[in-house]
Design a protein around this nucleic acid. Structure first.
Lengths: 218, 218
DNA sequence: CTTAAATTGTGAATGTGAACACAATCACAT
DNA sequence: ATGTGATTGTGTTCACATTCACAATTTAAG
């Protein structure tokens, strides 16, 4: 099932709603109103309602939305109702942080394998995972059914690694290398660039007073 | 100087252009055409030209844009022509990764101080920085003129730390805690949630074939 | 000097998303 | 039962952003 006439922006916000609902569930909230949900996500209430209404009538008038129910609906819409297998490439500082920190292991994403090209690191353990040889990556990925790769290697080796990934059937890469990766067209790469986030953040803080307040993109 | 009638979206894309230009400069490119810049940023060429034209005429017809010159212009527009002082709070795995990894120390952002509440960590060195006591944070921040704080502490202590920050005049926080922080209205918080990034990425990869290609938001 | 190729800058048209007001619905108290 | 307060769902209007086509300008070659 694909949702053809749903605005791209709405689709985007669904991920925000998902995160907020996950928080609310953790806090044992039973129901949530559109205005509360909007508040958490930094949007406005009518937008929340309109967004949700594209997919059905999930709320109860006069009451609000059932947190668990709505979360399930959204997860199904976003095709996140099955858990996702993630492979980490690069067992350096970032890699270790990602595996160790529980907050990244959120809801259905589990980093189940780690790879490196460094002989020193291969065979060592990070958390409960043993670092494997990057040479074995293509075979192992197919065996284990990996959906997504996290690229946490130094910029210099990123292109080399990229070539290895390109030969597998992985089509989703989350990269920490601050550069363009050369990839086949069907492979989607998201580049995590914290300095860009900081720049945006800083700019917006500085504008708060002078500029008409406007909601920020997620 | 504020830019009143510039679309929000244009403002947002400026950060993308900045990153791309930084890359290009590193690769010693002298000039760049709108189409090449568009390619790197995953947008289209007319959009790049229109965006830039809101701020002046930076290009040369028949030739393109001078990389250095354009980068300077954009940095000035985004008020990033002076370097930004960043304080890290939390000297755990993430914190260490941020300091160690050179790619985060990008262009004008320097993490110059680190704080923690853990007695064990205070006084230790991370890279070239000595971890200080969080109790001293308010004073030290004022002394050193910190523009932005990175919050890389476990979720449990995040609210406590948030209160300390709230009493300083820091108005920009980049948080790795996957939860809402209670902050005064004028303080902007950007929450880095990698699992949400992963979810978006995965959804978009899966849609590539069935859905009409559409540019992704930055 | 003239022509061709490349590339920017931009006004007008088009498309898309946001806002808003209000009708519809529900829970609950009396 | 019935009214009241709360909250959702949505059609319409409006504002904003994107696209497109083309004029303007530059470089380079003949």
């Amino acid at each position: 099932m694909t949702y053809r006439d749903v605005p791209t922006e709405t689709m985007d916000r669904l991920f925000l709603y998902m995160r907020a609902l996950t928080c609310l569930r953790r806090e044992k909230s039973e129901t949530v109103s559109s205005s509360r949900l909007a508040e958490i996500c930094n949007v406005n209430a009518p937008k929340v309602r309109k967004d949700l209404s594209y997919f059905g009538e999930f709320g109860v008038r006069g009451v609000g939305y059932n947190v668990n129910e709505l979360l399930d609906h959204i997860r199904r819409i976003l095709k996140l109702d099955r858990s996702v297998n993630v492979a980490l490439i690069g067992a350096g500082n970032i890699g270790r942080a990602l595996i160790t920190h529980s907050s990244f292991q959120l809801e259905g994403f589990n980093i189940s394998m780690a790879f490196d090209i460094d002989r020193e690191k291969i065979g060592t353990r990070v958390g409960s995972i043993t670092v494997e040889d990057m040479m074995d990556f293509p075979d192992r990925v197919e065996e284990e059914g990996i959906d997504l790769a996290i690229l946490a290697v130094p910029e210099e080796v990123a292109p080399e690694i990229a070539r290895i990934i390109a030969d597998t059937n992985i089509i989703s890469i989350l990269s920490f290398a601050p550069c363009e990766l050369c990839m086949p067209e069907n492979v989607k790469v998201t580049c995590v660039d914290l300095s860009m986030e900081m720049a945006r953040l800083l700019y917006n803080s500085r504008q708060t007073v002078t500029r008409k307040k406007k909601e920020r993109k997620p």
